[in-house]
Amino acid sequence: MKSTNQDLADKLWHFVDSYIESYQKVHGHLPVAELDEDWPSSCQQGLFTPQEKHGEQEQQILWQPVKADGNLCFNNIESALELELHPDIKNYFTVFHSDPLDALCQEGQLSLLFAWNENDFERLQENIIGHVLMKRKLKQRITVFFAITDEEDLILSLDNETGAVWVERVGCEPHKKLADSMAEFIAGLTPHIPA
């Protein structure tokens, strides 16, 4: 069954809500990242001031995923590659800005990838182009990655033709199907919040 854009967006926001709630239960505040003044994001929610400071520390920020402004699209990639990307992958990467979100699925731990800001979205697009060109060169079916795993060369990707979610080793054909659709896959995830 193919997912609709709204169904996938709803599942993503449900996961985000669950992630933020779980993170706050474990840590008592929003997620934290290092402050990079050259890499701002609408995700930033203010400076993080830990109760105890142990020596000099990098300045940190509190953050949470925020709705993307609607300017994110893949028209340039599709034109350059002469390829229409599956609607689910376009929707996945344009619903919100976020740092990676850690999750657990039946196969183990993974990190869902998103764009932190518009510059990061451009970098993401370049990486997708590189991935698709590699697939073409190797004469493999076209997939688009959206998550990394705790195993260095294993990624999760979406089959561009069917919309199914697969595990694949970088440079190889997908080898294990995890779900028939992105919405189904996202719905089966639980947040992974280390203490």
Rank of each mutant, 00 (worst) to 15 (best):
E168Y: 11
D38Q: 00
N76A: 15
Y19T: 11
E107R: 12
M134C: 06
C73R: 13
Q140T: 13
A195G: 07
L81R: 10
E184M: 06
F145R: 05
R141I: 14
V170P: 03
V132H: 08
I129H: 10
L158R: 05
H86P: 13
D159P: 09
T49V: 07
P65R: 05
K176G: 03
E122P: 03
S98V: 13
V167H: 07
T49Q: 12
P174S: 10
S111Y: 10
A179R: 03
P100H: 05
H175G: 05
A147Q: 13
I186A: 08
K2T: 12
I20S: 06
P87I: 08
W13Q: 11
K176A: 05
H86C: 09
Q45T: 04
H29A: 07
N5E: 14
D120Q: 10
G70M: 02
L178V: 02
G188S: 05
E173N: 14
I142D: 09
G130E: 07
G188P: 03
I193C: 04
I155F: 14
F48L: 09
Q59D: 12
Q64I: 08
P194Y: 12
L30Q: 10
D69H: 04
D159H: 11
D99R: 04
A179P: 01
D99W: 02
V144N: 03
M1K: 09
V95P: 05
E52M: 02
R123Q: 15
W116T: 08
Q64D: 00
E34H: 01
K25T: 03
H14T: 12
E82R: 04
D88C: 04
V132P: 09
K177W: 01
E52R: 07
